[in-house]
Structure formats: structure tokens, C-alpha cells
């Protein structure tokens, strides 16, 4: 078990190659749920959880079902079905256990299925030839990177809401420009390495 590699993967997923601000995966919920800090936090944790389990489940299915049977071309179909089922389970779990969060996330919870970040991390695990542990670490830390970005962004947006803004730029456009500046800041992490 190569711990230095795991730490590089984690650092990469959260800062250097942040899923939202560098790899552009997960923009739709990033824009949609970041208006308030508490929904952003809730969504961030839900996505981290789904990404972690999805990484594990899709790796197992790929390794023990698709590859041995020569069905590599079925990866996309199989992965997205697994993710859809997983999100359904998370929905039922939250509805029973944490109904407040379930209400707050509303329509955005089933939309985690179409979150590019979840399917993206499953496909990237295959592309990078990660083993099981590495895949799960990448999934969880990718989700944490999503969480960091969405919370930073939510705090900015809460402030921007109160500012004056040219009429055409109100709403999404000014949010995208703020995200651009955040992405610019994250460029500073490029080349960061501990080992």
C-alpha cells in the first residue's frame, strides 16, 4: 500500500486538480445549490458520500464483471445504472434519517445522478488504472474537493447577492465570473507536491 501515492491523489483531488474549479466536473449543482451555505454543505457531504461508494461499487463491477467477460464497452451503461440506484438509496436513507436535509436539498438530491463528478470519478478511476483503495480515496477526496469549492463559492455568493450589479449580469453571469476568479486562485496550487 503506497501511502505517498494516496496522499498525492488526495491532494490532487482536493486542491491541484479540484473537480469543479480545474476539471469542470459537477458544475450544474455547483451553480444550483450554492446560494446558501447550509444547503451547500449538505449537498457537498451527500456528493462526497455518493462519490466514495460509487467509486467502490463501480470498481468492483468493472474488475470482477465487465473486464473478465470482455464487456469493457458496457462501462458507461453499467456505471450510470449503479449510480442511479445508489442515489435512490441515499434519497430513501435521508428521507427516513435526516428529513430536514432531505427537504432542503429538494430536487437537487435526485440530480446527483446526473452530476458529472460522480460518473466522472468512476470513469477516471478506470482511465488512471487505480486499484480498489486508490479508487475509493480518489472518490472520497474528489467529493471533499467538491465540498471545499462549493462552500467557498457559497460564502462568496451570499455576499454578491447584496451588491449592485449590471442588470444583464444579475444571477448566473456574475456567479460564473466569481467562480472564474476562484478558479484563478486555485491555479496557485498547480505544481504543489509534498513528496
Amino acid at each position: 500500500m503506497n501511502v505517498t501515492k494516496l496522499i498525492s491523489i488526495a491532494l490532487g483531488a482536493i486542491l491541484v486538480n479540484n473537480f469543479i474549479l480545474v476539471q469542470f466536473l459537477g458544475i450544474c449543482p455547483f451553480m444550483g445549490v450554492s446560494k446558501k451555505m447550509d444547503t451547500a454543505l449538505g449537498m457537498g457531504f451527500a456528493v462526497t458520500f455518493v462519490m466514495g461508494i460509487a467509486s467502490a461499487a463501480t470498481w468492483l463491477i468493472n474488475e470482477y464483471l465487465l473486464l473478465p467477460l470482455g464487456l469493457a464497452y458496457m462501462q458507461t451503461v453499467a456505471f450510470i445504472l449503479v449510480i442511479a440506484a445508489l442515489v435512490q438509496l441515499v434519497e430513501m436513507f435521508l428521507q427516513k434519517m435526516v428529513p430536514a436535509l432531505y427537504q432542503a436539498l429538494g430536487i437537487y438530491l435526485p440530480l446527483i445522478t446526473t452530476n458529472c463528478a460522480v460518473l466522472g470519478v468512476a470513469l477516471l478511476n478506470v482511465q488512471n488504472h487505480y486499484n480498489f483503495i486508490e479508487s475509493v480515496v480518489y472518490g472520497v477526496t474528489g467529493g471533499l474537493g467538491f465540498l471545499v469549492a462549493i462552500c467557498l463559492f457559497a460564502s462568496i455568493r451570499e455576499r454578491v447577492e447584496d451588491c449592485d450589479c449590471p442588470k444583464s449580469f444579475e444571477g448566473f453571469p456574475i456567479a460564473l465570473i466569481s467562480a472564474g476568479l476562484l478558479a484563478l486562485a486555485f491555479m496557485g496550487f498547480s505544481g504543489l507536491r509534498i513528496f
Binding site: L21, F169, F172, I174, A179, G180, M187
Partner: peptide, 10 residues
């Protein structure tokens, strides 16, 4: 780079 993408789309 990513910055440019966000700014242009905005």
C-alpha cells in the same frame, strides 16, 4: 485555462 472558461461563459 479554467478561469477563461468561467469568464467567457459568464
Amino acid at each position: 485555462l479554467p478561469v477563461g472558461g468561467f469568464l467567457t461563459l459568464g
